[in-house]
Nucleic acid binder design. Structure first.
Length: 881
RNA sequence: GGGCGAUUAGCUCAAUUGGCAGAGCGUCCGGUUUACACCCGGAAGGUUGUAAGUUCGAGUCUUACAUCGCCCACCA
């Protein structure tokens, strides 16, 4: 097969011009669509973790885009029907907060504009902002099937949410009831356990006296004095000698003088605080349990905005913290206080607003999660789902094994309304409850106002986006998906929920592999944040360097599951790598001449350097393919870079000039075919890392096919991999290095051509028959072989590599004393290696127990080192004489 | 309190069946060699956190410890 390439390759890759053009071209050609692959092709599907619809691109998005696009492009090149399904999340709380802030800036509020208007404004905001993040993902080169883009509040997805909720209800897995929940007073909604973050803080521990009826006091400590007003008991350890006589008596709530029982319970820690515990069942999770055991009443003293209720008596209407202060002052006045002290403890704060969350009694909707969790545990346990890196499986199991029922209702306006209806019965407006997609027949039904936790709808994402609950063609073709790639920080929030809901509702694991990436951090390990001003903005980087360097850097900077520290200097280096590849391609391109046969010549027709670079290339392809299989993309990228920058460019490209600039048409043809083959393979390997430049450069190489994005992923041809060829070439390159060193030491003008004379040695023949190596790499004009018995030239620098000795006659430049010193230095370096190798081989245990190939390698090394030593010594002796 | 991760060159990080510890940036020396100064050639720089253990052989496996970070957990 012959092919030609575009000519007149520009001097530089103009990413600013090329990136949008190439992206549009791929789109227009439909290359991102799985239908591009043959109908019988195996599917490969990734559901994109949907970013917040009104968000804008940060470095975390850039990382997942780089990784997922890499996987998708790789599998697409491997012939799969690759589908990367994009979309956005309505992000209930986050979006609602944004709109509320907007309203605040306008001097109004959510409550003031009302429910309908607020939703209208939110949708409007979504329409205005919704395209931003999608446009930004495109700039990075994301090869998503945009025709299948979804939004969690789309009709189809909303239907899936209703269906899922109703199904769980019908199966008895959804219930509604009053429970103590984590209440966010600022957001005025319940939040789930996961949305509460504890931070260790310095607070005050207040010690005070609890008056006991009939005289006496019980000393008690608390960090939240305002909850005293809601106490319904004081608890003691039943075996506490100090106080046990008080059990059964009644205590009086300070200021309010409400009488409450003194109870005994082994839960109380005698060592902590005063050893006596105030019990506030309505505002503390532990006390709630304690109260249940003892049949104590709940007394709610907090309103939903964290102001005090009427039950707080004189403090009613005060904010919780104002109440804390006022009550403590009053208690001081009443002589009930003992002392206060500084105390470090964990304070529960809302993941969103950061405000202190209050345990509060509230009626909420819950999913009975254990049955779902069990299936999710089993699926990972039996290997139907694999988590990469594996260590996260342990974390996953631990969470699922201790899981609590999931509070799925939120008192927000933006989200999926829970499909429940209430009707008044016996004076209770919610006396009758009905759950179903549509209102039941009959009058008087009012729909539930609460919405579902955002994670409920995103938990359905891998299948709701494909049309579930409909039995659509996409569901049949593309479900289950293959890989779920996301950050380890949302393993519980999202991944575990997808697995639970997926297994429960579709009876299939939604994906077979979970690949977790780490967080991108700033230099020094600090979290990126706008306030610190250390955020690397991916779009600024794209403007400055293009998308390819950013992608390559993100992928090669980290390993799976580990946080990575993004370093600006690496971005610059990646940019230079992109340029380097462009220049290499340009070099090949300008040395083409019309049509070229794409098949490689037979190995027997090729010279040593060509067979070497092909061996190295196919070894690289094998390594990279393996590394992709085990998700080691960073290492794969680094290996490609090392091959191109350290082997292909400085050695093979240089050596090939001999043929390209020479007079033999056959030699030129061979060199071109090897160069094109190697560069073509490299561009294919790199395409998933840096799609834009590789696609553009590929057009300037003779190739089959219309686009690199659809080109086949290279396969390693073992017949090219040849250890002996690599060993021979590496001896030659070793000689090159030594000659360069010698030239440097004798300050030989780099432009000056010199001669070399080789004594007989293993590499001598190779160097003599491949004169291009020395000529092109160290400016040795010609190498002559010396007869075995001929004397070596006297006025020459000596280069020793294994059993090969090269003499460089440097007439007039050589200083015999300096040469002796140089050779002695070389001998010194050899001695260390010799000693080490001899010691190893003298060790019988090593010789007998180590792998045979390892022993052989040491023997070969020893032989070479000894030969080199002998040569150096002989040379030195001749110089002394 | 439990669990996990990290600790390797001045800095940021690699090193996946245990087999001579690498790269980028920085530093030093030398170069406008017709693909590339967005480059090329050379050099210096390491007791792989500490202490033991397993092994012919340990950055890699085991144990303990130290420091840092993260996750989970109901001591007011």
């Amino acid at each position: 097969m012959k092919a030609s390439a575009e000519t007149q390759m520009p001097r530089n890759f103009d990413f600013a011009e090329a990136e949008p053009r190439l992206y549009q071209w791929w789109l227009d050609q439909g290359h991102f669509k799985p239908e591009r692959a043959p109908a019988e092709a195996e599917p490969f599907v990734i559901s994109m973790p949907p970013p917040n619809v009104t968000g804008s691109l940060h470095i975390g998005h850039a990382l997942f885009t780089a990784l997922e696009d890499l996987m998708i492009r790789h599998e697409r090149m491997r012939g799969k029907a690759a589908l990367w399904l994009p979309g956005t999340d309505h992000a209930g709380i986050a979006t609602q907060l944004q709109v509320e802030k907007m309203l605040r800036d306008e001097g109004t509020s959510r409550e003031a504009v009302g429910y309908e208007e607020f939703l209208r404004r939110t949708w409007q905001w979504k329409e205005e902002q919704g395209g931003t993040i999608i446009r930004q993902l495109r700039r990075l080169g994301a090869s998503c099937d945009w025709d299948r883009e979804r939004f969690t509040l789309d009709d189809g997805l909303s239907d899936a949410v209703l269906q899922a909720f109703v199904t769980l209800w019908e199966q008895g897995l959804v219930y509604r009831g009053p429970r103590l929940v984590n209440w966010s007073p600022g957001l005025q909604t319940a939040v789930s356990d996961l949305e509460v973050e504890t931070s260790e803080e310095e607070v005050t521990l207040y010690y005070f006296r609890y008056p006991v009826e009939g005289g006496g006091f019980l000393p008690v400590a608390t960090t939240r004095p305002e909850t005293i007003l809601g106490d319904t008991a004081v608890a003691l350890h039943p075996e506490d000698e100090r106080y046990r006589h008080l059990i059964g008596r009644r205590a009086l709530v300070p200021i309010l003088e409400r009488a409450i029982p003194v109870i005994g319970d082994a839960y109380v820690d005698r060592e902590f605080g005063t050893g006596a515990l105030k019990v506030t069942p309505a505002h503390d999770f532990n006390d709630y349990e304690l109260a249940r055991r003892h049949g104590l009443p709940l007394l709610n003293v907090l309103n939903k905005d964290a102001s005090m209720k009427a039950a707080a008596g004189p403090y009613a209407g005060l904010d919780r913290y104002a109440c804390r202060e006022r009550l403590w002052r009053d208690m001081e006045a009443a002589g009930l206080t003992i002392k206060t002290e500084a105390y470090r403890t964990r304070i529960p704060r809302s993941q969103r607003g950061g405000e202190v969350v209050e345990p509060l009694m509230s009626t909420q909707w819950y999913v009975r999660i254990q049955p779902l969790a069990q299936k999710a545990i089993d699926a990972v346990r039996d290997g139907r789902i694999k988590i990469v890196p594996e260590r996260f499986e342990k974390v996953y199991f631990h969470w699922l094994e201790n899981i609590q029922d999931w509070c799925v209702s939120r008192q927000l306006w933006w989200g999926h309304r829970i499909p429940a209806w209430y009707r008044e019965k016996d004076g209770d407006p919610q006396g009758e409850v009905y759950v179903g997609k549509d209102a039941p027949p009959g009058d008087g039904w009012v729909m539930e106002r609460d919405v579902l936790d955002t994670w409920f709808s995103s938990g359905l994402w891998p299948f709701s986006t494909l049309g579930w609950p409909g039995e659509t063609a996409d569901m049949r073709r593309f479900y289950p998906t293959q890989v779920m790639e996301t950050g380890h920080d949302i393993l519980f929030f999202w991944v575990a929920r997808m697995i639970m809901l997926g297994l429960w509702l579709t009876d299939e694991p939604p994906f077979h592999t979970v690949y977790l990436h780490g967080l991108v951090r700033a230099e020094g390990g600090a979290k990126f944040s706008k306030t610190l001003g250390n955020a690397i903005d991916p779009l600024t980087v794209v403007d400055r360097l293009g998308a390819d360097p950013l992608r390559f850097t993100l992928i090669t900077s980290g390993t799976p599951g580990n946080d990575c520290h993004l370093d600006e200097t690496r971005l610059d280096h990646s940019f230079r790598f992109v340029n380097k590849i462009w220049q290499m391609t340009a070099f090949i391109n300008m040395n083409l001449d019309g049509e070229l046969e794409l098949e490689l010549p037979e190995a027997a027709e090729l010279d040593l350097p060509s067979r070497w670079i092909l061996s190295r290339l196919h070894r690289l392809i094998a390594n990279v393919s393996h590394l992709f299989e085990i998700y080691q993309y960073g290492e794969a990228g680094n290996q490609i870079l090392a091959f191109m920058w350290d082997e292909l460019a400085p050695f093979y490209l240089e050596i090939s000039k001999e043929a390209l600039y020479g007079s033999s048409p056959a030699a030129k043809d061979r060199a071109r075919r090897v160069l094109v083959h190697v560069q073509d393979c490299c561009l294919r390997l790199l395409h998933p890392f840096m799609p834009f430049m590789t696609e553009e450069a590929w057009r300037y190489l003779p190739h089959e096919g219309e686009a690199l994005i659809l080109a086949a992923w290279p396969t390693a041809d073992q017949s090219w991999i040849d250890d002996s060829v690599e060993a021979r070439m590496s001896h030659c390159l070793e000689a090159v290095r030594e000659i360069r060193n010698a030239r440097g030491e004798y300050k030989v003008d780099p432009g000056r051509r010199i001669q070399a004379i080789a004594s007989v040695g293993a590499a001598a023949e190779d160097l003599a028959s491949n004169q291009a190596i020395l000529r092109r790499l160290c400016n040795v004009e010609s190498l002559t072989l010396l007869d075995a018995d001929a004397p070596e030239p006297a006025k020459a620098a000596s280069i020793v590599v294994g059993d090969l000795t090269l003499s460089l006659p440097l007439a007039g430049m050589l200083d015999l004393a300096a040469e002796r010193a140089r050779l002695e230095g070389e001998l010194g370096k050899l001695a260390d290696g010799l000693e080490r190798t001899r010691k190893m081989l003298a060790n019988e245990n090593f010789v007998n127990r180590a792998r045979p190939d390892v022993v052989q390698r040491e023997r070969d090394r020893l032989r070479e080192l000894e030969a080199a030593q002998a040569q150096l010594e002989a040379r030195l002796a001749s110089l002394q004489a």
